[in-house]
Design a binder for these strands. Structure first.
Length: 812
DNA sequence: TTTTCCTTTGTTTTT
DNA sequence: CAAAGGAAAA
C-alpha cells in the first residue's frame, strides 16, 4: 500500500467518524465495520438498536467507505487535502463532496435486509430507520424471519410444489391435524399427545430433517416412539401439502429448500441483499442459521447481534451454539463487545451480573454503567400471593402519588397463571393495567371462527378450517355426516369442499345432501362476493350470510355479547390493515398478515397503564420500575428446572433478562405460601435471590405475625432461607397491624384526597373501566366498598374500594 | 344432533 | 382455581 493510499484511508475514516460522534468507541467501531462477518455481543441495554440504525445509515451513505482499502477513481493530493482539513472546519455545502470522496458503493435501501424476531421489533426498527433516513428507510427490508420468508414464498413457492395462495396454520391448527392423524393410526393419545408430537416434529424441522430423513434416523429397532412419530410426521407433511398449508416451521423450512434447490432464486437474493443483519441471534435455531447463511452466502456481509446471556428459547429449539461458535463458522469474522449499559443503575447491574455469573460457558462480559449506584434492589417477602400482589399495587400507587405515571411500571412473572392475583389487586385499587399475552385476541374461538370463514373463502381446499365452520353456527351437519364426507374425500383423493359441492353424486350422503349443497353454495356465494367487494364490506357480508352473528344475537347472554364485540373488533383490524398496507389490500394479503401477528405487537407506549406480562414477553423492553413476582424455587426457577443443570441455566438467563429490564427501581418478591392450580404450597426462597450480593439489596419482610399460630396453621415459616434471612436484614414494614386485604396500601391511601360522595344509581367514569353505574355503597372503616356495573361487557360488575379507586374515577 | 355435566389438566412460546 | 375436552343425556 502506498503512503498516499494509507493517508487517504485514514482521512476518510476520520471524516466518516464525524457522523457518529454520539456513539461510544465500541459502538462506533460496530457501525463502521461493514465488510465481512461481524459478531456483535451486545449486553442488555447497551444501545444495540441505536447501533443497528446507525449502521444501516452508514451503509446507505458511505457503503464500505469506513472499512475499505479501495480508493475512488482519479483522486489526488487535492482531494486528500480536502478530507484531511474537513474535520476541523466542516461546512454544509461540502457534504456532496464528502459523500463522493468517502462513499465506496453506497448501498441502496432495498439491498439491506434486517431480520428480527418479533413484528414489534421489526416495526420499531423500521420506524427508527425512517426517522434517521427519511422515506428511504421504508425501502429497507426490516422484517421477521417469518414475514421475510412469506414474502419470498409468495413469489416462488410454486417451485417447491405449493400454490401461491397457501394458508398458514398456527400451532392450534397443527395440533388438530396431528390429533386426527393419531386417531387415524389408532395410537394411544395419552402416549402421543399432539403437543409432544408437534414439538418433536418441530425440532426435526429445526434440524432441517425431512420426514424421510427423520424416519431413517429413527428406525423401528431404535426408539420405538420416535419411529412412530416419523410416520406421523410423514402423514402430517402430506396432509399439509394437500391442504396447501404451511405451519410456522414450514415457512422457513420451505424457504430454505427453495433457496437450496433453485440456483436462480438463490442468486437473485444473494445479489439483492448486499448486507444482512440479524438481531437476537442467540435465539436462532439451526434452520434459521441455514437460512441466514444462504441469504448472506454471497458476499458474507453478515452482521449478527445478540447476547448469549439472554438466550431464553432453548426449549423451542434456539441453539446458543449459533452465537458461541459464530467465529468458527465464519472465518475471518470480527467480534465487538458492547458492555456499557445505558439503561440501569449500578446496583441493578451488579445484581444481574452476579446472578448470571453462576452460569458456566458464557461469553465473558460484564456490564457497567455511568448512571450511578441508584436505589438498592428491593426484595420483599410476603405471606401469600394476594399480599404479594397488594404490596406491588401499593408500591405502584405510592409512586404515582409521588408523580410517576402508571406506564412507568411493569409487573413480570414466570407464567401466565400468576397474573390472576395481581390483576385482582390492580383492579381493586383502580389501577389501569394491561395484560400482554395470555389469552390472546386471535386465540379466541369467535375470532378463529371468523378467520376460518375467510380462510375457506380464500382457499376452499383448507379442509381443517372448513371442518371448523361447517357446523358453526349449527347447520345440522354433525360429526357422523362429516366422517362420511371425510372418507369419500380420502377415497377419491379430493378435498372436503369438493365432496360438499357434489354431494348429490354420492348415495351415502342422500339424507344431508341439501344441507351440504347449501353449505357449498354459501362458500361459492362468498367467493363471488370476495372478488367483487371491498374487503371491509365483504367481511360484513360473511358475518351476515354465514348466520354467525345472528346465532350469537339469538343466544343473547353476557358471553355472546362479548363475542359479537370481538367479531366487530376483527373488523377494525381489517380496517387497520387496509390503512397500513393499501398496496396489498387483498383477502390473502390480510390472512397472511394476521397469521403472523401476535398480541405482543399491540403494546404501545401511548396510554397510561401498568404493563403485566411474562418475562419471556418482556425481552427487548425496558421500564423505569420493574416488579418481578414469585421468586421461589418451584416457581422461578420452575419446578421442572430444579434438578437439571441446563434448564436451570436457562431459568437463570431468564432471571437476568427480568432484572435488566429495570431502569430505576427493581423489586423482587416472593411469598411463604402460594395457591396455584387450586393447591396451596410453601416454596423455598428462589436460589437466584441468594445469588445477589448483599450489598445490592434491601430485604423487606412483613412484620412478625400478631399470633404466632397464624403461620403454624398453614405449614409454618418457609424452612430456613426466607424468614431467617429476612429477619437478619431487619427490614420491618410499618405497624404490626397488617390488614390482610389491603396489604401495604395503608400509607399510600392515607393522604388521599377527600372521599368522593357516591350513592346508589350514580354514574361514574373510570379511567380504566369506562362508564358505569353504582349498584351499592357500603361504608367500611374510613373507606367504602362500592359495586359498579360497567358498560363494557368484558368488564362487567366490579367491587372497588372508594378511597383508592376514586382517584381514577369521577362522577358524571 | 345438540346440550349438559363431569373429568382432566395445567411452564415459558417472539412466529 | 379455571378452562377445555369428552362422554352421556335430551
Amino acid at each position: 500500500m502506498t503512503e498516499f493510499q494509507q493517508r487517504f484511508i485514514t482521512a476518510r475514516r476520520a471524516v466518516i467518524e464525524r457522523d457518529f460522534l454520539t456513539l461510544n468507541p465500541r459502538q462506533r467501531e460496530a457501525v463502521m465495520t461493514t465488510r465481512g462477518p461481524l459478531l456483535l455481543l451486545a449486553g442488555a441495554g447497551s444501545g444495540k438498536t441505536t447501533v443497528l440504525i446507525q449502521r444501516v445509515y452508514n451503509l446507505l451513505t458511505y457503503g464500505d467507505g469506513s472499512d475499505s482499502l479501495e480508493l475512488p477513481d482519479g483522486v489526488g493530493e487535492e482531494e486528500l487535502a480536502f478530507l484531511e482539513a474537513y474535520p476541523d472546519a466542516p461546512t454544509e455545502h461540502d457534504k456532496a463532496m464528502v459523500r463522493h470522496l468517502c462513499g465506496v458503493h453506497p448501498a441502496a435501501p432495498w439491498e439491506v435486509l434486517a431480520i428480527t424476531f418479533t413484528n414489534k421489533a421489526a416495526g420499531e426498527l423500521k420506524e427508527r430507520l425512517v426517522a434517521r433516513l427519511g422515506s428511504r428507510g421504508n425501502d429497507v427490508w426490516a422484517a421477521t424471519f417469518h414475514s421475510c420468508c412469506v414474502r419470498m414464498l409468495r413469489r416462488d413457492i410454486d417451485k417447491v410444489g405449493f400454490d401461491k395462495d397457501f394458508t398458514i396454520y398456527d400451532s392450534d391448527d397443527s395440533k388438530r391435524v396431528l390429533k386426527d392423524i393419531i386417531k387415524e393410526m389408532n395410537l394411544d393419545d395419552k402416549v402421543f399427545t399432539p403437543r409432544e408430537v408437534l414439538s418433536t416434529i418441530s425440532h426435526a424441522k429445526d434440524r432441517y430433517e425431512s420426514p424421510a430423513q427423520f424416519a431413517a434416523y429413527n428406525t423401528e429397532d431404535g426408539d420405538w416412539k420416535k419411529a412412530r412419530i416419523a410416520k406421523i410426521y410423514t402423514k402430517y407433511a402430506d396432509k399439509l401439502r394437500s391442504a396447501n398449508a404451511l405451519d410456522f416451521d414450514d415457512i422457513i423450512y420451505h424457504t430454505v429448500t427453495l433457496l437450496q434447490q433453485n440456483r436462480e432464486v438463490l442468486d437473485y437474493y444473494q445479489t439483492k441483499f448486499r448486507y444482512v443483519l440479524v438481531d437476537e441471534y442467540q435465539d436462532t435455531n439451526h434452520l434459521q442459521y441455514l437460512l441466514t447463511s444462504l441469504l448472506a452466502g454471497g458476499r458474507k456481509n453478515l452482521c449478527v447481534v445478540g447476547d448469549d446471556n439472554q438466550s431464553i428459547y432453548r426449549f423451542r429449539g434456539a441453539n446458543i451454539e449459533n452465537i458461541l461458535s459464530f467465529e468458527k463458522q465464519y472465518k475471518q469474522s470480527r467480534v465487538i463487545l458492547l458492555e456499557q449499559n445505558y439503561r440501569s443503575t449500578q446496583h441493578i447491574l451488579d445484581g444481574a451480573n452476579a446472578v448470571i455469573k453462576h452460569n458456566l460457558g458464557q461469553k465473558d462480559k460484564t456490564l457497567w454503567t455511568q448512571n450511578g449506584a441508584g436505589d438498592l434492589i428491593t426484595i420483599k417477602t410476603t405471606f401469600n400471593e394476594s399480599d404479594e400482589a397488594n404490596y406491588v399495587a401499593g408500591e405502584i400507587l405510592m409512586g404515582v402519588n409521588r408523580g410517576r405515571n402508571f406506564r412507568e411500571s411493569a409487573v413480570l412473572y414466570r407464567m401466565n397463571a400468576q397474573s390472576n392475583a395481581m390483576e385482582y389487586a390492580l383492579k381493586r385499587n383502580g389501577i389501569p393495567y394491561k395484560v400482554v399475552g395470555g389469552t390472546k385476541f386471535f386465540d379466541r374461538a369467535e375470532v378463529k371462527d371468523m378467520l376460518a370463514y375467510l380462510a375457506v373463502v380464500n382457499n376452499p381446499m383448507d379442509d381443517l378450517r372448513l371442518r371448523r365452520i361447517v357446523n358453526t353456527p349449527a347447520r345440522g351437519i354433525g360429526g357422523t355426516t362429516m366422517d362420511k364426507v371425510q372418507s369419500i374425500a380420502d377415497s377419491q383423493g379430493i378435498s372436503l369442499y369438493e365432496v360438499l359441492r357434489n354431494a348429490d353424486l354420492f348415495p351415502e350422503l342422500k339424507t344431508p345432501c341439501n344441507k351440504l349443497l347449501k353449505m357449498a353454495d354459501l362458500i361459492d356465494g362468498l367467493r363471488k362476493s370476495a372478488r367483487e367487494m371491498e374487503l371491509e364490506a365483504f367481511y360484513e357480508e360473511v358475518c351476515e350470510r354465514s348466520g354467525y352473528v345472528k346465532a350469537l344475537q339469538d343466544k343473547n347472554d353476557m358471553e355472546s355479547r362479548g363475542r359479537i364485540e370481538n367479531v366487530e373488533e376483527l373488523k377494525s383490524n381489517i380496517v387497520g390493515f387496509l390503512e397500513q398496507m393499501p398496496e396489498d389490500a387483498t383477502l390473502s394479503g390480510f390472512l397472511n398478515e394476521i397469521a403472523l401477528y401476535t398480541d405482543l405487537d399491540s403494546v404501545d407506549a401511548g396510554d397510561n397503564y401498568v404493563t403485566m406480562m411474562t418475562i419471556h414477553s418482556a425481552k427487548g423492553l425496558e421500564f423505569p420500575n420493574v416488579y418481578v413476582l414469585g421468586l421461589e424455587d418451584g416457581i422461578f426457577p420452575g419446578s421442572s428446572a430444579l434438578y437439571q443443570e441446563e434448564e436451570l441455566e436457562e431459568e437463570r438467563r431468564l432471571c437476568y433478562v427480568a432484572m435488566t429490564r429495570a431502569k430505576v427501581t427493581l423489586t423482587l418478591t416472593n411469598c411463604r405460601q402460594r395457591m396455584l392450580y387450586g393447591r396451596t404450597s410453601a416454596n423455598p426462597t428462589s436460589r437466584f435471590l441468594n445469588e445477589i450480593p448483599e450489598d445490592n439489596y434491601q430485604w423487606l419482610s412483613k412484620a412478625e405475625p400478631r399470633v404466632a399460630s397464624e403461620w403454624d396453621d398453614v405449614g409454618g415459616f418457609a424452612q430456613g432461607g426466607a424468614a431467617t434471612r429476612a429477619m437478619q436484614s431487619g427490614g420491618v414494614v410499618a405497624s404490626g397491624r397488617v390488614n390482610r386485604t389491603s396489604g401495604g396500601l395503608g400509607s399510600a391511601s392515607a393522604n388521599a384526597t377527600p372521599m368522593m360522595k357516591l350513592s346508589q344509581g350514580d354514574m361514574v367514569e373510570h379511567t380504566a373501566f369506562g362508564r358505569g353505574m353504582v349498584l351499592s355503597v357500603q361504608s367500611m372503616g374510613g373507606d367504602a366498598l362500592i359495586e359498579v356495573a360497567f358498560e363494557k361487557a368484558d368488564t362487567g360488575k366490579k367491587k372497588l374500594m372508594l378511597k383508592s379507586a376514586g382517584k381514577h374515577m369521577k362522577k358524571v
